[in-house]
Design a protein around this nucleic acid. Sequence first.
RNA 1: GGGGCCGUAGCCCAACUGGCUGAGGCACACGGUUUAGGUCCGUGACAGUGCGAGUUCGAAUCUCGUCGGCCCCA
Length: 822
Amino acid sequence: MTTPPLEREAYDPHTVQDRWLPVWDRLDLYRAGRAAGAEKKYVLDMFPYPSGDLHMGHAEAWAIADVVARYWMRRGFDVLHPPGWDSFGLPAENAAIKRGEHPATWTYANIEVQAESFRRYAIAFDWSKRLHTSDPEYYRWTQWLFTRFLERGLAYRKSSAVNWCPQDQTVLANEQVVQGACERCGAVVTKRELTQRFFKVTDYADRLLDDMEQLKGSWPDRVLLMQKNWIGRSVGAHVDFVVGSETVTVFTTRPDTLYGATFFVVAADAPLALSLCAPDRLAALEAYREQVAAATDIERQATDRPKTGVDLGARALNPVTGEQVPVYAADYVLADYGTGAIMAVPAHDQRDLDFARAFDLPVRVVVDTGAEDPAVTGVATAGDGVLVNSGPYDGLRKDEAIERIVADLEARGAGTGAVNYRLRDWLLSRQRFWGTPIPVVHCDGCGLVPVPDDQLPVVLPDLRGDALRPAGTSPLAGATEWVNTTCPTCGGAATRDTDTMDTFVDSAWYFLRFCNPDYLDGPFDPEAVRQWMPVDQYVGGVEHAILHLLYARFFTKALHDMGLLDVTEPFSALMNQGQVILNGSAMSKTTGNLVNLGDELSRFGVDAVRLTMVFAGPPEDDIDWADVSPSGAVKYLARVARLGEDVGSLPLSDVRDVAVDKVVAKTVDEVTRLVEVHRLNVAVARFMELTSALRKAHDAGAVGVASLRDGVEALAVMLGCFAPYTAEEVWSRLGHDVDGGDSVHASTWPSADPLLLVEETVTCVVQVAGKVRDRLEVAPDIGEDELRALALASDGVVKALDGRAVKVAIVRAPKLVNVVPA
RNA sequence: GGGGCCGUAGCCCAACUGGCUGAGGCACACGGUUUAGGUCCGUGACAGUGCGAGUUCGAAUCUCGUCGGCCCCA
């Protein structure tokens, strides 16, 4: 191919993009399996939601992951890097209502726009692995998996007080309620008593917690910490209190404080409060319950909130002391945590103490921590200590006491050691349209009947526009023809379940489907999954630290237990890239604080935007677009292109220049290490230094042409992972027949000749009292004594000592000697 | 209230297990190139590492305190 000469004056990135993109498409460079037989690597970004075109955040995340993917390709690994879309969800539905369309119209149009942007952005995707979760070919298998969970009792229905978003008109999982508000729309979440479907995540609480051990070091610590806190395992005991004719079990982490339990509290909104209440207190309780219903969970749990409650006129029998203590209903105890009831130990729990002081209840110290009496100070003592006022347990240390008391409770059948979790089961049903239909049929005769596998998928009916308006029940209920069906078991009249699944169900297993998205005989191809799983590098925002990552881990473990998967953890390594912000705050359409990715790409070109993204700082740091300089990246890339042109046009020769070879080897060595540990910004800095060094060598007279060519070639290969277009341009300038298949993106990562990395002399710094006074060129393997003698005799040292005696000379051969004067 | 992270030039950020008063980029200044204050090439200036103390032969790096910012849990 004859390439038009590159204009000196203007390096136009768009020309270069237009030149290479079609060539790459034809060469099909990134297909998984190209390096069949080589060790595999699976690189994955958290797949995007198709809301409009790609934005700056996408550009950062994919730029980072693409460097990793391309690096591994250059290193000879067989790399899977697939594109896909998390394409069910509310924004499509809301858009469809507004436009009077089907949600698919908006969704698939956006997917096409994003796909084209990814292509132009030069992400090294294997497009043959593309998937969309809203395709019937995909959600068929989401339904199939749901049925498996159902069969194993891992999916179930129950009635409970659930989170309800009044804006989106649907229930939400606990994980989707952030600070009391809907994670998606921000509306304040309320509670509703509804029958909903759940996944039994709590069955896996221990393993989700314990298996994090194997993720340590390759997942960010803070993500592991957040998951740990979310699961919230606490060890303690269940203790049975008898209230009237009922036995009420409480969970406590402090069974050692049973002697200090001076009252008993049930959650005001729990049904238990009503059943324990004395008849003459019912009116007061009802009034209080109304008040409580109006408060949000955040308000209820605020520590500085005045404690309120109602005396239920009942007594609870403490199984250890035989004491009868008063029973209150209060809102600081939550109905859905533990058993919804607690034994209150005001001396050693701050909230109990606050309540005791408000209601003038006794405070009895049973663990002597050495601190002052909580009844006096108002500060509960939660620390370690020795038991007092505790009958036979007096004098025991806290941990001994816990052990003994639990044993005694168990012996008497009044309690048992227990573990409690903060984690709740995952509420998966939604009252919205654009999601995976729950494949269950309601039959009067047979009850709830799962749709048989051979009748999947249960395809969404064609609803559009106003038919999708949320009304508190799923829009699917309005599709009469769709709802009315026959029972797969008895053949009689039956109705379909009208709820859809949380879109987090779709994304809890997509990484498995990616291994072979065309597989027809199951949700994923066991052979392909065995080959590619687990994901070697997962890249995504920290906002999924709990939600998606917890669900994906749960699915992986559950599928493992079903014998469908070998692995127990889906993602071996996780990287959280930062956000792209502007002028110190998040980009937002509503405030106009926004940079449009398409505009930036038009102004600076793809490579400059990609390079700016990775050069701005460590991948996990936020990038303030106002602080960085895409035009600087443009200039740098133009410099590289010119270097490629100049060096490429030198007459071929075998002459080498060891100095150049050394600089190149050193850069290759360093960049390799930097990319391995994802210090991509530093790697770019090294590229810039190498570029300057090669430029200088070239301008100095171009001896050692072979070294120069090899240097530019190595630069092109490495830079190709970051700035694929410019690198290809340079590669082609060096004489490679890209059109014929010799693309820089099919080349091999350079290796640094170890011999070139060895320095034959090292500069030894000679300090006197910590200040540099001389430098010596010494052999790298110089002996300590020899170096000490050399240093002491050096001019700088003699001068600095000025006749003073030497107390000691610290020698760190071969790099440093520090002479300490007496 | 508890726990964690961070603080390097005007700005963004490097610096392996403490060891050469510290990389790269942006912005800036000067010189050359130029019709051009643009591009390019070159040169240069700018930091003693938030502040205070300690440990050490030696501290950006370790310890303590303090100020400031961020995150998680409660």
